[in-house]
Design a protein around this nucleic acid. Structure first.
Length: 941
RNA sequence: AUCGAGGUGGCUGAGGUGGUCAAAGGCGCCGGGCUUAAGAUCCGGUCCCAGAUGGGUUCGAGGGUUCAAAUCCCUCCCUCGAUACCA
C-alpha cells in the first residue's frame, strides 16, 4: 500500500458520529422534514442479512436526505414483546425481560457496527412500561368510545401457542407463528373494531404510495362487496331469513336457501321435528371444526334439509331451507340464497341433493332460455325466465339494479355493503405483552383502570411453566380493588397482541422521550407521515393494516391530525444464496449435500438460489463479513448487487470484488489532491461530467433506485477520472472540486470511507453533518463537451478495429492516420431523416421528401438517392437516442476530431493524425464514400 | 384451484410505439500491454463456427401475424407472492 493511503477505521468514525450527536434530530419547522423508517425488528439475538439489507437501504436514503438539507428523523427501536422470549423462558428458564434485554444489547451492538445513522436517543422498546403505558391509555380511550369491547364469540385458538389469534394471524388454517393447527373456541375476548374504518382504509390506498401487490393484498383483506340483503318469509312462521347476495340478478333462480349450521334460526326451525337429529349431527361436526380441517374438506359439500320452506319475496314460490357446511356463520347474515344455475357451490350442492337447477341468465342475448345448464354460469348475463315483467332482457348492473329496486319497493330488501375484515381480536393469553388495563368487578363489570393509575405493570412474580397464562400465577397482580366501587376485584389477565405495539411506534418516535404524554400532537403532526418506510412484504396485511387503522382511530380521538401513517412503502427483496438442488425431484437441499448425489433419486445435484435459512444452512453471518471486509464493503455489495425490491443472491466473489473497489477508492483522495498539472481543455469536460453524474445520481436517489445511484458514485466516476487523466487533465482545482462533491456521493453507501476522504480534504467537521450545496445542472455547453468526448471515445474504438486490417494491407506498421468525416450533405440528409421520424412520420414517406429536396437535384441525384436507400436508411434505425441527439446538435464531428489530433496520435502510437471533411477541397483521399456521419473513414499509412 | 407479479447471455440490468438486437451499461471471468510489483491503469475477448468487415443459433416453450418480433396475438410450461367455499 502506498504511503498516505488510509485504511478506514470504521469504529472510530462511528464513535465520532456518536460523540458529535450528528444524527440526533429535533423538531425544526423552518426546514423541510423527512421521516425515514424501517420496520423495527424483533430482538432475536443476532442481526441477519435481511436486517443488513433493510437498514442499508434505509440508511442510504436517510443520509441522502440529510445531505440534501432535510431535517431527517431516522429512528430505531425494538418490537420487544412477543412469544419467542416467553417461550425461551419456558424452555431454558430465566425471565422474558432478561432474555429480551440481553438480545437487544447484542443486536444493538451489531447494528451499530454497520454505521447506520440512527437517532438512538429516540429508541423505542415495546416492553418498556413508558411505552406500553400508552398502549393501555389508548385502549381505555377506545373502550370509552366503544371502539374496544369484550365479546363472547367463537375465536381462533392455537394450542401450541396456547393463545387466541386474530383473523389476520391465521394463515391457511394455521398459526402464523408456529404453523400449528387453529381450532374454533367460544371465549370471551377483547376486540377492537377495525371494521368501522374499513371504507376509509380502502379509500386511503389510493392516496398513498404502496407497491401494487401490497395495495391488492389490503384490498382483498378488506374485502368490500356491494349487494343486497334480501328478506325471505318462512312458511307458517313469523320469522324471516335475511340473506346477503352480490347477485340479486339471479334471485329468480333461487331454488333453496342455505343456512350455516350455526345459524340461530336453524336450531329453532328443526326443534322437535324429525329433522332435528340430522341438523344436530352436522352442527356438531362443523361448529367446532378447526379451520385447518375445514379447509382440508373444502369442496366436500354437505348439508341437511331443515324440512321447512321459505317464501320467495318476488314470486311467492315455496323454496326449501337447508343447512350446509359451506355457509359461514360469520360472513354476511350467515345465510345464502342458493342459485345453483349461477353459482358453482350451489350447483354442486343441488346436484348432490337433487334440488332443481334453474336458468335465469343467458350468456348471449339471443340464447335459448330453455337450454339446460351443464355447469353453473357465473358471469354476467341477460335475465330470462323471471315470469314477471320488467326483468327479462336486462343485463349486469342494470339487472341487479332492477331486482334490488323491486325488493326495496316492497320492503323486502336493502342495498348493503359487506366487508370481509372482522373486528381485531387483541386478547392474548400470554405473559409477555401489554396487560389489558381492565378490572373485573362483580358489581360494576369490566372497569377500565383510571388513567392516573397507568401503567399496569407486568409483575415479575410469575411462573413460566408452559401451561396456562403465567399472569394467573401472580396473586399480587390478580388481586386489586374496583376503581368504581372499591370492592375487591380481579385484574384482566389477557395481554395485548404484539401488533398493538407496532401499530403506533412510529408516532412515539416523533416524541420518544416524553414521559408525560404518549407524544406531543404537534411533534407528531410535524414529523408525520413517514416519508419512506422500508421493510419486508410479510407485513402487508397485518402490521401495515393495523398501523393505518390505529393512525386513523387516534386521529379521531384527537391525538394528532394525520390520516395515513406511511406515504411511500418499499418492500425490499430477499437475500438468497445458492444451495444444492435436484432438478428431477424439484427440491432444494441443505448445503451439506453439495457434491453428493440426490438422497432421493441419486441424480447429480445442481445449484439454485434459495432464501437464506438455517435449515438449508446457506446463511452468511454479517458479523463475519464485517470482520473480514468492513461494514462499507458489505453495504456497497448489498446496494450494488441488485435493485432494492428485487431478490439478491449472495456471492462471495462479488463481495470480494466490491472490497477491491473500496481499496481502490481509498487511494483516490491522495491521487486527486496531488494533481498539479496546468489548465487544459479537458478540465471543463471533467466538471461537466461531474455535474452530469451528480444529476444522474440525485435522480436515482430520488427514485430510490439505489443500485444505479451506487453504480454512478462508486463505479462510473472512477472511470470518468481515469479518462480525464488520460486526456491530459490533472489540475489541482478540478481535483478538489471533484473530490468535494464526490465525497458526498459515496457517503450514502460507504459513509466511513467518505469521512476519511472528507478529513483528507480538510473538510469542516464531520461529513455526515455537512449539507451539500445546490449544485449546478448540466448546461448546454456542458452537454456539447460531453458529446464531444463521447465521439472521441467511439472514434478511438473504431480506429483501433480498422487498424489491424489496414496494417495487413500496407504491409507494415502504420505511422500516420487520416480521418475522413462524412461529406456535409450526408449530415444534412441524416438530420432531415431524423427530424422526419421524430415528428412521428413513416420512414417510407421520406423518399418522397428526399426526391423533392435540394439535396437530390442535379448531377448528384442518383448517387444521393442510392446512398439513402443502401446506407443511410438502415443506419437511421441503428443510432441510439444519444447519437441521434448528437447528430441533431450543432456539434461538428470534424472539429471535435481535429482538436484532438495530438491525443489520438498518442493513443494510437502514431506520428501524425489529420482530419479532413469528405468531399472538401482538402480531401484528396477518394475515401469519403465510406464515411458515414459519426463513423468516419480511416486511412492508415 | 383462483388472483397478482414475473421469466432477457455466468450474474446484474436496459430495451419492449415491431426494423442494425447477438441484444446497452455494469459486475465477474479470460488473454494481452504497461509495470520491480500491484488490488491501479490501458487494450482485446467473453452463445457457437469462422477469422479482413462472414455464417449459424439465441431473449421460458410452441404456434401465429408481418417483408421484418426479445418487442404484437394465442396456447402451454416454470418461478415467486397472495388467497382459501366471503355468497
Amino acid at each position: 500500500m502506498s504511503e498516505g493511503v488510509r485504511t478506514t477505521n470504521e469504529v472510530a468514525w462511528q464513535q465520532a458520529w456518536n460523540d458529535g450527536e450528528i444524527f440526533a434530530s429535533s423538531d425544526d419547522p423552518s426546514k423541510p422534514k423527512f421521516y425515514c423508517l424501517e420496520m423495527y425488528p424483533y430482538p432475536s439475538g443476532k442481526m441477519h442479512m435481511g436486517h443488513v439489507r433493510n437498514y442499508s437501504i434505509g440508511d442510504a436514503v436517510a443520509r441522502y436526505k440529510r445531505m440534501k438539507g432535510f431535517n431527517v428523523l431516522y429512528p430505531m427501536g425494538f418490537d420487544s414483546f412477543g412469544m419467542p422470549a416467553e417461550n425461551a423462558a419456558i424452555a431454558e428458564g430465566g425471565h422474558p425481560h432478561d432474555i429480551t434485554e440481553k438480545n437487544m444489547a447484542s443486536i444493538t451492538e451489531q447494528i451499530k457496527r454497520m454505521g447506520f445513522s440512527y437517532d438512538w436517543e429516540r429508541l423505542v422498546k415495546s416492553h418498556d412500561p413508558n411505552y406500553y403505558k400508552w398502549n393501555q391509555l389508548f385502549f381505555t380511550r377506545f373502550f370509552k368510545s366503544g371502539l374496544a369491547y369484550r365479546e363472547h364469540a367463537p375465536v381462533n385458538w392455537c394450542e401450541p401457542c396456547s393463545t387466541v389469534l386474530a383473523n389476520e394471524q391465521v394463515k391457511a388454517g394455521r398459526c402464523w407463528r408456529c404453523n400449528g393447527p387453529v381450532e374454533q373456541k367460544d371465549m370471551s375476548q377483547w376486540f377492537i373494531d377495525i371494521t368501522k374504518y374499513a371504507q376509509e382504509l380502502l379509500d386511503g390506498l389510493d392516496i398513498i404510495n404502496f407497491p401494487e401487490s401490497v395495495r391488492l393484498m389490503q384490498e382483498d383483506w378488506l374485502g368490500r362487496s356491494e349487494g343486497v340483503e334480501i328478506e325471505f318469509g318462512i312458511e307458517n312462521s313469523e320469522d324471516t331469513i335475511r340473506v346477503f347476495t352480490t347477485r340479486p340478478d339471479t334471485l329468480f333462480g333461487a331454488t333453496f336457501l342455505t343456512l350455516a349450521p350455526e345459524h340461530p334460526l336453524a336450531e329453532k326451525l328443526v326443534k322437535g321435528t324429525e329433522y332435528e337429529s340430522e341438523w344436530k349431527a352436522i352442527y356438531d361436526k362443523y361448529a367446532n371444526m378447526s379451520e385447518f380441517d375445514r379447509i382440508k374438506n373444502l369442496n366436500k359439500k354437505e348439508g341437511v334439509s331443515l324440512g321447512c320452506f321459505a317464501i320467495h319475496p318476488l314470486t311467492q314460490e315455496k323454496i326449501p331451507i337447508w343447512a350446509g357446511n359451506f355457509v359461514l356463520a360469520t360472513y354476511g347474515t350467515g345465510a345464502v340464497m342458493a342459485v345453483p344455475g349461477h353459482d358453482e357451490r350451489d350447483f354442486e350442492f343441488a346436484q348432490k341433493y337433487g334440488i332443481a337447477i334453474k336458468r335465469v341468465l343467458v350468456e348471449n342475448e339471443d340464447d335459448d332460455p330453455s337450454d339446460a345448464l351443464e355447469q353453473a354460469f357465473t358471469g354476467n348475463g341477460y335475465m330470462v325466465n323471471s315470469n314477471k315483467s320488467g326483468f327479462d332482457g336486462k343485463f349486469g348492473d342494470e339487472a341487479k339494479d332492477a331486482v334490488a329496486s323491486a325488493l326495496e319497493s316492497i320492503g323486502k330488501g336493502d342495498r348493503q355493503i359487506n366487508w370481509k375484515i372482522r373486528p381485531w381480536l387483541i386478547s392474548r393469553q400470554r405473559y409477555w405483552g401489554t396487560p389489558i388495563p381492565i378490572i373485573h368487578c362483580d358489581e360494576c363489570g369490566a372497569v377500565p383502570v383510571p388513567e392516573d393509575q397507568l401503567p399496569v405493570v407486568l409483575p415479575r412474580d410469575v411462573e413460566f411453566t408452559g401451561k396456562g397464562n403465567p399472569l394467573e400465577t401472580s396473586e399480587s397482580f390478580l388481586n386489586t380493588t374496583c376503581p368504581t366501587c372499591g370492592k375487591p376485584a380481579r385484574r384482566e389477565t389477557d395481554t395485548m397482541d404484539t401488533f398493538v405495539d407496532s401499530s403506533w411506534y412510529f408516532l412515539r418516535y416523533t416524541d420518544a422521550k416524553n414521559l408525560e404524554k404518549w407524544y406531543d400532537s404537534q411533534a407528531a403532526d410535524y414529523w408525520m407521515n413517514v416519508d419512506f418506510y422500508c421493510g419486508g412484504i410479510e407485513h402487508a396485511q397485518m402490521h401495515l393494516i393495523y398501523a393505518r387503522f390505529y393512525t386513523k382511530a387516534l386521529r379521531d380521538l384527537g391525538f394528532h391530525s394525520i390520516d395515513e401513517p406511511f406515504n411511500e412503502l418499499l418492500c425490499q427483496g430477499m437475500v438468497n444464496k445458492s444451495a444444492p438442488f435436484c432438478v428431477s425431484c424439484s427440491v432444494t437441499l441443505p448445503v451439506s449435500n453439495a457434491g453428493l448425489p440426490c438422497p432421493q433419486c441419486s441424480e447429480p445435484l445442481t445449484e439454485r438460489s434459495a432464501k437464506m435459512s438455517k435449515s438449508l444452512g446457506n446463511t452468511v453471518s454479517p458479523e463475519q463479513m464485517i470482520e473480514k471486509f468492513g461494514a462499507d464493503t458489505v453495504r456497497l455489495f448489498i446496494l450494488f448487487a441488485a435493485n432494492p425490491t428485487a431478490g439478491m443472491d449472495w456471492s462471495d466473489v462479488a463481495v470480494e470484488a466490491n472490497h477491491r473497489v473500496i481499496l481502490q477508492l481509498q487511494t483516490m483522495p491522495l491521487q486527486l489532491l496531488e494533481w498539479n498539472k496546468p489548465a487544459h481543455d479537458i478540465d471543463a469536460w471533467m466538471l461537466a461530467r461531474l455535474r452530469q453524474r451528480h444529476q444522474q445520481w440525485s435522480d436515482d436517489m430520488d427514485r430510490y433506485d439505489l443500485r444505479r445511484a451506487v453504480e454512478c458514485s462508486h463505479y462510473d466516476l472512477v472511470k470518468d477520472i481515469n479518462w480525464y487523466v488520460r486526456r491530459g487533465g490533472g489540475r489541482a482545482e478540478v481535483g478538489r472540486e471533484v473530490l468535494e462533491l464526490w465525497t458526498h456521493m459515496i457517503a450514502i453507501a460507504t459513509p466511513h470511507l467518505a469521512e476519511d476522504w472528507w478529513s483528507q480534504l480538510g473538510g469542516e467537521g464531520l461529513l455526515a453533518a455537512h449539507i451539500l450545496e445546490e449544485y449546478a445542472p448540466v448546461s448546454e455547453e456542458d452537454q456539447a463537451l460531453l458529446d464531444g468526448e463521447t465521439l472521441l471515445r467511439d472514434l478511438l474504438e473504431q480506429a483501433r478495429k480498422v487498424r489491424t486490417v489496414a496494417e495487413r494491407h500496407i504491409d507494415g506498421e502504420a505511422t500516420s492516420l487520416t480521418i475522413v468525416t462524412s461529406a456535409p450533405w450526408r449530415y444534412e440528409m441524416a438530420s432531415m431523416a431524423l427530424n422526419h421520424l421524430a415528428e412521428g412520420n413513416n420512414i417510407k414517406a421520406f423518399m418522397g421528401i428526399l426526391t423533392k429536396s435540394e439535396l437530390t437535384q442535379g448531377e448528384f441525384r442518383g448517387e444521393r438517392l442510392g446512398f439513402w436507400n443502401k446506407r443511410l436508411l438502415p443506419q437511421v434505425f441503428k443510432w441510439d437516442d444519444e447519437k441521434k441527439r448528437i447528430l441533431l446538435s450543432p456539434l461538428e464531428e470534424t472539429v471535435v476530431y481535429a482538436n484532438a489530433c495530438a491525443f489520438i496520435a498518442e493513443e494510437l502510437g502514431l506520428e501524425s493524425v489529420q482530419v479532413v471533411q469528405g468531399e472538401s477541397q482538402e480531401d484528396d483521399t477518394q475515401k469519403s464514400g465510406v464515411a458515414m456521419p459519426l463513423s468516419p473513414a480511416f486511412i492508415y499509412a
